[in-house]
Amino acid sequence: MRAKLTFALVAGLASATCFPTVHAASSAGASPEIVSPLEAQARANWREDISRTATPSEGCFQATYPSIIWKQVACKEAIPRVAPVPRWSSFGASETAGNGNDYTLQSSTLITQAVGTFPVVTGVTSEKGVGVAAYGGGGILGANEYSLQINSSFNSTTAACKSHSGCTVWQQYVYAPDYSVQGEAAVFMQYWLIGYGGTRCPSGWGSDGAGDCYKNSAAATAPDVPATQLGNVKLTGTVTSGGNDTVVFTNGTTAYSSSGKDSVLYLATVWKVGEFNVVGNAGGSEAEFNSGSSITVHLAVTNGSTTAPSCVANSGSTGESNNLNLGSCTASSGSTPSIQFTESN
């Protein structure tokens, strides 16, 4: 992943014998669980509630339906995987999503939360991460290797730049299978100081050798979810000025989160642009879906407004990509203004 580079329950649930049954998400790789429509709705409500429930402190947490209480768990270190800047002119077919060619939600007011989901997924039977020649074939490659990313833009400067001329900040909220340990996914935030200058990065930050600095937050451990189950997952990214930023990944009836201080980048003071998609897993790689795949992408924000945001094409900030062609984008108003588009092959 790389900036320039290249997330009270309804009670009295009815019995499944009284209502038609539906299939709900269960654990990764397991067969879908059959539940009643009211139970499915209660679980959806829980996923919404837990994503909006602040974690009690910095660190990693987990919650299990129907509880909306975060329980602290051990964090793991997620050593950053770095890739080069987007290469719009030299990589791939221009209509495929990612590598800068993506829709972003652009708000006129500050965003405090962004929620990414895939409300409709059809025809997806397989996915694999593949290397991209322009990026040296890097990344985490193979079957079911992809990442979910909510990304800010990298056009704004904050106090984190420490007055370095030309410096801007960029933040990702990430779910990445096999990121540090095979068989385990990582849920974390990746921070960037773009154009910080030379190799003089702050203590604890790495340098990409091109004047940019990077580091990861602590990572929560989550299951590797097959790409065929994208319709079951949700990624949420939250900022709190003077408090903690949080990434939350929910899959079925379990939620995983990692929180870190907003003062790492002070994103809360400038966040007005959001990108969400399923793309390659680090290193400028590509998520390659089987022919006939169609995925609807939905990104909703809380920004103190009910006005429809702008949906801007060719404005993504991640260098990772997928092999799906972007359709048209629709922006909607409401309590959580949103954008939605379908990508397919």
Rank of each mutant, 00 (worst) to 15 (best):
N155W: 12
N144V: 01
G204K: 05
A331T: 14
N290P: 12
G274C: 00
D49C: 01
A185M: 09
A210Y: 14
N345Y: 12
V124F: 03
N232I: 00
P337C: 11
A63T: 07
A143Y: 04
A74N: 13
G197C: 05
P337R: 06
G197K: 05
Q62F: 07
E145S: 12
C161I: 02
A331V: 08
Q72E: 14
S257D: 00
A3H: 14
G136P: 05
S165P: 08
I69G: 09
V301F: 04
S165E: 10
V239I: 13
W205D: 01
E58C: 06
T157C: 09
A97I: 02
T336D: 03
L141E: 15
L110K: 11
K234C: 07
I111E: 03
G136C: 02
V239C: 04
T336M: 10
D49E: 06
L235C: 09
R2Y: 06
Y196D: 07
S153G: 12
A8S: 07
G209W: 08
A160F: 10
Y191S: 12
E286Q: 15
S89P: 05
N244H: 09
K71C: 11
E39T: 15
T117M: 03
A210T: 12
C329W: 01
S207M: 04
T158V: 05
N251T: 01
G206N: 08
T269G: 15
A160K: 10
T306D: 12
